[in-house]
């Protein structure tokens, strides 16, 4: 019987990184993820950038093992970097070059022949939504355009994996949405795996297949987003009075109800749940204030996990 083999995109094993023997950036991090769009979330200083730099072979781990696309960046960083595109968090663009010149040059630095580099640079810039502007000096670009240039240079050599460090930094809400949509397109239509680093969970959970959460250099949780959010849709019911009665009534008809302040939360099994609740409210003749479906944000899943590592 053939077994379904799942390719591992990234894997770390007891990965630890301390700076100068005192500051610990990563502690005993063991995680393994499959290709797709991966969100790496954690507060500022949680160790996200350190992890990315270890994956690129720019930093050597203090201990533990790491593999990227089946390669070991501590042994053969050049081979890893040839197949990876990196978008740094901070400003990285010389102001007096045009986007087309810069991306072409960096394409050649990745080993693309001259004409190929030029073609792929304008293609990459087109894919990120820069057209005529690409021949203007980068110094005059908006933050959003600069972020797009940084993304284009990571894409120019057709990597198998993109490492994006806070790609929505400094963008306004519309710019954030556009950037996230672009990343989602790269991960799905282009067939390139993406690791998106962000301190904003709500942002990346929308586009990711997999979430890896780290805090203080430790792994909080890593799982498929589907596995985290399935069976977590709940109905929130609020009545102006008689909350206790309704809770008892719902429990009586077999619904696992829970209290959250003035709200009653009922897991949504299927559409019949709505009818059951409305039926109960009607029977008790209570003034229904609101009844809406609430999608459990992944943040709540992490929040409930956090106290467990006290």
């Amino acid at each position: 019987m053939p077994t379904l083999e799942v390719v591992t995109l990234l894997a770390t094993e007891s990965l630890t990184k301390t700076y100068g023997g005192r500051v610990t950036a990563l502690t005993d991090l063991t995680v393994s993820v499959e290709p797709g769009i991966i969100g790496l979330v954690g507060a500022n200083g949680a160790g996200k950038s350190t992890l990315i730099k270890i994956l690129l072979g720019l930093l050597a781990p203090t201990s533990g093992r790491v593999s990227v696309l089946g390669l070991d960046p501590t042994v053969d960083p050049a081979a890893v970097r040839a197949r990876v595109g990196y978008m740094p968090e901070h400003d990285a663009l010389p102001p007096d070059l045009s986007a087309a010149e810069l991306v072409t040059h960096l394409g050649r630095m990745s080993g693309l022949p001259r004409t190929v580099a030029r073609e792929r640079a304008s293609e990459a810039l087109r894919h990120v939504g820069l057209h005529e502007e690409r021949h203007r000096a980068v110094g005059g670009y908006s933050t959003g355009m600069k972020q797009r240039v940084k993304l284009a240079q990571a894409l120019v050599h057709d990597p198998d994996l993109l490492l994006l460090d806070e790609p929505t930094n400094g963008l306004d809400p519309a710019g954030r949405d556009a950037m996230l949509a672009l990343i989602h397109r790269i991960g799905t239509e282009f067939g390139i795996s993406v690791l998106v680093c962000s301190h904003l969970l709500g942002e990346v959970e929308r586009i990711c297949d997999t979430l890896v959460a780290i805090d203080g250099g430790r792994l909080l949780r890593a799982d498929r987003v589907a596995a985290m959010t399935s069976a977590t849709d709940v109905l929130a019911v609020e009545v102006s009075e008689g909350t206790e009665d309704l809770a008892a009534r719902l429990a009586g008809i077999g619904l696992p109800v829970s209290r959250e302040g003035r709200l009653l939360l009922v897991p949504l099994a299927d559409d019949a749940t709505y009818d059951q609740i409305i039926g109960a409210v009607a029977e008790l003749d209570l003034p229904l204030h609101r009844l809406d479906q609430r999608r459990h944000r992944v943040a709540e899943l992490f929040a409930t996990r956090e106290p467990s590592h006290v």
Partner: peptide, 8 residues
Amino acid sequence: PLYFSRPL
């Protein structure tokens, strides 16, 4: 960082 994240 854009140079050093490449094979060079």
